[in-house]
Design a binder for these strands. Structure first.
Lengths: 150, 150
DNA sequence: CAAGATGTAACAATAAACATTACAACAAAA
DNA sequence: TTTTGTTGTAATGTTTATTGTTACATCTTG
């Protein structure tokens, strides 16, 4: 299965805060409009991002802001915050390999480090992308679009 | 969500062929025993591996063999064969970002290449592991176990 | 032909994602 | 202080993919 859309949603949320945060209040309804996803789903993701210390959400009055400098938040932080994979493991292992078979008994010994290598390679790349880069690119593409329409 | 256990099952299957292929016939029932997974699930995976040209399955008589030299099959080949992710995309993107929002309209432009970078890093690592390495390690750990018991 | 496999269809069970309604708790402005 | 708009969250439903299971036609060889 694919990695939950919670991740791309979370990134989309940050792009919205970057773009609209100065002009207007970024509420869960606003984000629901931009992403085309139910506001309650958005609020759940906001809760996870808040729990990870990446954003602040204003109770009562409403609105979301980023809690840390953008170059200090990576895609990996976001990925981990929204818990895309259970237990942090990218690969789902079959549950009860047969203990009385030499292969079944040793399959974890054999495989686990290899799977971890793959997972680490992926996470390393996630860690190399910051929200600052996201902001730069978001501005770039939106401005490009403006030029094309003038 | 995590990547389907079809992948680790497929690798487990190859480890069994490596280990038992010379001594006995590796049938779907045998593999079901070692993995502790239903034979029909095994047969479906065997069908996918066969479709990708990685193994031969003997109709009627039964039994599975590897179709290519082990150092010419990578974990990536196996991963792709068992179709762990839809459409080949590791990340699930929310379906209909709002076209009338500047961010919603551009989110794919902004994100797609970054997601691809991450996916490629992961696939590159998958491609670096061969079934030859798997076989070596399988033998190693099983022999280690024998020593410990003597 | 008989025996033991594979290939596959059909259906059930489970689990996670995502949607939706509803409402209490909250903070600020009127 | 009441109103207004928002967040937090529970409860429930819908959908989709996974995995399990039964059943049986098909195949190969002895």
């Amino acid at each position: 299965m694919q990695i939950s859309s919670r991740f791309t949603l979370a990134i989309h949320i940050f792009a919205c805060i970057d773009t609209f945060g100065n002009e207007c209040k970024v509420t869960s309804d606003f984000l629901a409009g931009s992403t085309n996803v139910n506001p309650v789903i958005i609020r759940k993701i906001l809760g996870q991002l808040k729990g990870a210390g990446l954003i602040d959400v204003a109770r009562g009055t409403g609105g979301t802001t980023v809690a840390k400098p953008l170059d200090q938040i990576t895609f990996l932080d976001v990925y981990r915050a929204v818990e895309c994979v259970e237990n942090g493991d990218l690969f789902h292992f079959h549950d009860n390999p047969n203990d009385s078979c030499p292969v079944g008994r040793n399959i974890h010994q054999i495989l686990d480090d290899k799977l971890l290598r793959v997972q680490s390679a992926m996470e390393k790349e996630l860690a190399s992308i910051t929200l600052e880069e996201l902001k730069q690119d978001t501005e770039k593409y939106i401005q490009q679009e403006c030029k094309n329409n003038s």
